[in-house]
Write a protein that binds this DNA or RNA. Sequence first.
RNA 1: GCCAACAUAGCUCAGUAGGCAGAGCGUCGCCAUGGUAAGGCGGAGGUCACCAGUUCGACCCUGGUUGUUGGCUCCA
Length: 635
Amino acid sequence: MLNIELKDGKVLEVAPGTTIAQVAEGISRRLAKEALVARFNGKLVDLNRELNEDGTLELLDASTPEGLDAYRHSSAHVMAQAVKNLFPDTRFGIGPAVKDGFYYDFDTEHVFTPEDLEKIEKEIEKIIAADIPFSCRAVSREEALEFFGEKNEEYKVELINELPDESEITMYTQGEFTDLCRGPHIPSTGKLKAMKLLNLAGAYWRGDEKNKMLQRIYGTSFPKKSELEEYLRRMEEARKRDHRRLGRELDLFTLEEEGPGFPFFLPKGMVLRNELENYMREMYAKWGYEEIRTPIILNRALWEQSGHWDHYQENMYFTRIDEADYAIKPMNCPGCMIVYRHGQHSYREMPIRYAEMGLVHRHEKSGVLHGLMRVRAFTQDDAHIFMLYSQITEEIKNVIRMVDEVYRIFGFSYNVELSTRPEKAMGDIALWDKATDDLRQALEELEIPYVVNEGDGAFYGPKIDFHLEDSIGRTWQCGTIQLDFQMPEKFDLTYIGEDGQKHRPAMIHRAIFGSIERFIGILIEHYAGAFPAWLAPVQVRVMSISENNSRYVQELTDRLKAAGIRAEADDRNEKIGYKIREAQMQKVPYMLVAGDKEMEAGAVSVRRRGEGDLGVMPSGDFLERILGEIRERQQ
RNA sequence: GCCAACAUAGCUCAGUAGGCAGAGCGUCGCCAUGGUAAGGCGGAGGUCACCAGUUCGACCCUGGUUGUUGGCUCCA
């Protein structure tokens, strides 16, 4: 008999050869029904696996990440099977589970249409109804190559050839369909309860633009119909808070055909921008920064010196002035290097922190533009910090603390990535290693969880990136901290040390919003357009009940404005319900209703967005309340 | 840049067999003077993204261009 230890510590005795599914059956009917895959002695396995050694066993259902992953990966296989049935000449790429669903890449002459997705869904239903078991078979490399080679599955052959020598090669079969796959899979297709194909996309084979573009079908699947419906409903809700839609509805910004990727900020959007910049300037003062501004157009020699001419040219815009080459800046660094170089610096001044709200232009490929999130002209809340080598770790930690303080004001949660040396890097490897270690050390000393993004650094240095989520869960890089030993070298920057000699300073680039445009995009979706009072383009709308109150409404509005509040009067000849509705849809935080009653009492009736009628209060009390709220930058 | 889809009034969207272009919201005017999410009536508003082609005739069919959307690659 074998001793099988369960997750709760209970030990079962089972006969050798018993399958995991049978073990589950023995424990409870519910487990037998819901378990999808298992972890045996630390390894993920199928439920039909026979137990032939002692070990620890954990049964995984769809509530576990591994279970859900197997469920969705199996869904991908079923979709592939359906595609194979309907379009037999199709060849297969890969089909993994991803966040919120799965995809599979196909190579076929036939170009899939949205109608095809419906047909494929019907075919999927048939496969699920037939409840076909997934079976696994380990094969030799030769056998696998022969099997897929005969079917002209060039992509599978490529994958097999690249598998390391010692790896076990397995093939999974459900019915007529066999796929190269590591597994594990769920026991049978009948376990799939709620599947939906979502969209079609092109995707390069192995994510390399030099390769052929395959057709990718995205789908999702859930253990319950209700969960699928809930997911679709959530996505629909998320679309309502899409910043492109809200940007239009709230008159914040516009993108026009005349300037693809070059956003126009409307008056209300400009208020938002300015509030963010004002806030950031307060942060500059608090954290010891001095603000500078450098030119947008600078000559070719500068860009050659900085390395951008060689490393960044395809992203730059150029112009000519008096027969000489100039470039529009894609980054602020070189300008800032000149500012540093302009004067003499002593070790006593360090660290020197130069901040710049720098407008940069980058030629982004047409297909990547996305509302405010990815544009061709944007303003970075940039800063370059020059310091002694001994100050690096502490300074990086300071920046991380500052980022945290800023994100906290908006109630953001963020994730942190450490990006290391890319292939197209400048400078020597020892410096890169030192820089990367410094960044890592700062993160570890502050106990910030992070993931490493190998090869994703900038061409001049490694970086810590802060990523924020949009409404549908896509993440966007916003804050960044980059340690750069190259730029001070290239520009021969020095300071005079204690010893009276010239020394090379270390430098950090950092941005907290990242790009003000992108940050606004994220903010719009984060708040669904309902900004806290300090950010709201219109903070108060004062509404009259009838024409009698028009003058009072004007006076109130003027008084609010005089106190620095963004107030608007609405004394139009409309019913109060209509005015409320409109202010509510414009997501104005405070709506003041002023009728005869209020007018006589010198009071206002206060309605708060999201909270409703707060009752009547003296207008002075209201003023105090909102001023406090704005001053505190309350959420 | 690549794959696919889409582009009709300020916005959201109908529309046709290839034969005078439609709604709701918004806007403007008039009436109604009102109490916390839409009062009533009327008017204006369109080179159907752009350029070619096919046709007696093109918003509709074909080709191209531009832009947008979803992805891929790339990235703040």
